[in-house]
Write a protein that binds this DNA or RNA. Structure first.
Lengths: 248, 248
DNA sequence: CGCCGCCTTGACTCCCTTCAATGCGAGTGG
DNA sequence: CCACTCGCATTGAAGGGAGTCAAGGCGGCG
């Protein structure tokens, strides 16, 4: 009995403290005891197959999800079937924060590749957050960061032309990947052209043409889903000035 | 001494419980004692003159603001001077939530008319939220609602044409005003055409033309800043189908 | 092989932008 | 009182960038 509890304890503790996404994720900055308490909230983590939904708009909010491995897209659908991709999420990022507003998911979340998530019971998370100020603050930050990201995207859709949007998208992805220990100059796109297009408020054909333009300028080499950034500085020049004055 | 404290107490208590925005604002659902504790966090409320900034991008986060009277716009600026209006806020709505992400405001907030706000010390609010679950939950909801709103706006910028965007904008404003006890069919726009345009990702000329189109269809009567909705149903028909399937 | 999903490219169209002129009301000063 | 300016709104004409439609390519897989 005691042994089982110990094993469980070890297993649960291992969930977060062993996670490669720890430093970008909800438990960032928590001490060991705090981490253990958060770990206890995390039900068995599970896999989501490529293309499978994690949740859908209209589902009641019970769980939030932290991405452990893989990537997701979130989107909203209009009644007449238009899709707007609202984001692409990487390990350490949270899914489902929009659902807190009305206790109901407003987005659909789909895995872009075979992935793994840590489900967190939201009401228990709120309860624990009252006792762990660092956790409470992290949750607030995650929510707020989502707002800031959406503002960046709004700036792109409202004020940038198609090539600028595409360059900004690639740079953003590059930066987030490099933060996670991947190469910033060579990576694989997990999403289709039409999903990039929806995210950027463009048609998939426009994405293809944008890619062709970047290739002509010898800024990138893109073959299918494979991206190589040949001239990072030149790529940044395309969007310098478009970005919020606050960042960097 | 005792009398002063009582007077103060009454004054502070009056701040929220007398406020016409109470039912949409942060203290919604708090009981009397809880309300009193929140009231104590609210420093002296103050006025902001039309056109004046409440805060600017880059300012450190110390205060959040609840709007008591009036209206604001928030916007982000790019380095090369492009402005993207990210929202128009009415009484009971919160300003500054984006700043939690990095302890620094990322938006500019300007009063669209002579207004009055309730400043709330953020770190104290976080502290109090640990003791008042309802307050904690409200704060989370406000943050999450902001995300949902941004998603709606993204859907507009990404998938709707200029007339649909304008109609959706007017309907949204109409609905929020009516929730606050104003007429849903007759109201005054507090913002300029170019601000509406920036919000909707369009030029001000396109807004003017959109208004002309709505007028030709006898859906609205718009003279300068004065709006009269003549055919609410018809206006809704324009955007039915464009909206997220989850809402309503 | 042949189908299917996804990507690419070209030609044409159209909606929104750009540029420009005009209107119009408020505030100011002669 | 009127002339003048200034900020904001309106409307027209022309141009361009992204959308639409269509054809074809490429690669994976039954």
């Amino acid at each position: 009995m005691t042994e089982v509890r110990l094993l469980q304890g070890q297993h649960l503790k291992a969930a977060c403290s062993n996670c490669s996404a720890l430093e970008f994720c909800l438990p960032f900055g928590l001490n060991t005891q705090e981490l253990e308490r958060l770990d206890k909230l995390i039900l068995q983590r599970f896999k989501v197959r490529k293309g499978a939904p994690l949740y859908r708009a209209g589902d009641p909010l019970r769980l939030l999800y932290a991405i452990r491995i893989g990537s997701f897209k979130t989107s909203v659908l209009s009644l007449d079937g238009r899709e707007q991709v609202t984001g692409f999420q990487l390990p350490g990022e949270m899914l489902g924060l929009d659902a807190i507003s009305a206790d109901e998911h407003t987005c659909n979340a789909f895995a872009l590749e075979d992935s793994e998530v840590c489900p967190i019971h939201f009401s228990q998370l709120e309860k624990l957050a009252r006792e762990l100020p660092a956790l409470q603050h992290n949750l607030n930050r995650f929510l707020s960061r989502e707002i800031v990201r959406d503002h960046d995207l709004l700036m792109m859709l409202g004020n940038m032309n198609s090539d600028e949007r595409l360059a900004a998208f690639l740079l953003n992805l590059s930066q987030r990947l490099s933060m996670r220990g991947y190469s910033s100059s060579e990576f694989i796109l997990k999403m289709r052209r039409d999903e990039i297009g929806s995210y950027l408020g463009l048609r998939l054909e426009t994405i293809c043409r944008g890619i062709a333009h970047l290739r002509e300028q010898e800024l990138v080499e893109i073959a299918g889903r494979e991206v190589k950034v040949l001239n990072m500085h030149g790529l940044k020049q395309l969007v310098v000035g478009c970005h919020s004055a606050v960042l960097h």
